[in-house]
């Protein structure tokens, strides 16, 4: 079965869904995490506790909730999104955003004081200050992105529920592995699993190289 057109289709859909959800998650999670790392306000502790809880959200639970929301009999049923790639992206955004927010917050918090005060004394606007901090904390933020990517691409419970594993439409690597195993094609399942591992490895090595470079430059 190695690398037939069907397999490519499954791999490319996996990558599409994962990248879209990580990008969307970054758009929301990073600014939110930076904000939490920089400002204090009443109720912040509760929000932080919630974010840390959501970092370990069970994917199947997210799957069920998104399923019920998008179901034809649910509140968003008219959108007709259930069993589509969009539905899978929605579920994964819910899963990865807390990870991105939480790790950004931790990274920003570590850098906060010095850079914050320097930027402020140089007369930076709040937006400029936030951008500066995010740039300075990028090592930690990247590890958040890596964690989010790893979670999204290897996740199966939620995408199975809301995507439905429909051939040529919503079948991704993880759901294909389940199907292959259920039908007794252990070899095919294992092969896909190796591809999944290879992608994860490649992605994480890129991030690692980036982080290493940053560490070196800082030491100088």
């Amino acid at each position: 079965m190695m690398l037939t057109q069907d397999v490519w289709e499954v791999i490319s859909l996996s990558l599409k869904v994962t990248t879209s959800s990580v990008l969307l998650g970054m758009l929301m999670g990073i600014p939110f995490g930076a904000f939490l790392g920089l400002y204090s306000f009443p109720g912040k502790r509760l929000i932080i506790a919630l974010i840390y809880t959501c970092m370990g959200l069970p994917p199947v639970l997210v799957g069920v909730i998104v399923y019920l929301l998008l179901s034809r009999y649910g509140p968003l049923g008219s959108l007709d999104l259930l069993f589509s790639a969009e539905a899978m992206i929605i579920a994964q955004v819910v899963l990865v955003t807390p990870i991105l927010a939480g790790l950004t917050m931790a990274a920003v918090h570590g850098k906060e004081r010095t850079y914050w005060e320097t930027a402020k004394s140089l007369g930076a606007t709040p937006l400029q200050m936030m951008l500066t901090i995010i740039r300075e904390a990028r090592g930690g933020i990247w590890s958040g992105v890596a964690a989010a990517f790893g979670r999204a691409i290897s996740e199966v419970g939620a995408v199975m529920l809301v995507g439905g594993n429909i051939e040529h439409h919503t079948r991704v690597m993880t759901t294909a592995i389940i199907l292959e195993t259920r039908t007794g094609n252990f070899t095919a399942g294992l092969q896909l699993g190796l591809v999944l591992l290879a992608i994860s490895f490649l992605f994480n090595s890129f991030l690692m190289v980036g982080m290493m470079n940053q560490m070196k430059s800082r030491r100088r």
């Binding site: 179901s71 034809r72 439905g164 594993n165 429909i166 051939e167 040529h168 439409h169 294909a176 199907l179």
Partner: peptide, 19 residues
């Protein structure tokens, strides 16, 4: 023609959702 690759219960649910 859609292929769900899942069990009967899930497939019925999908059939209902998709009319």
């Amino acid at each position: 023609y859609l292929s769900s690759g899942q069990g009967m219960g899930e497939t019925l649910q999908m059939t209902d959702e998709k009319k």
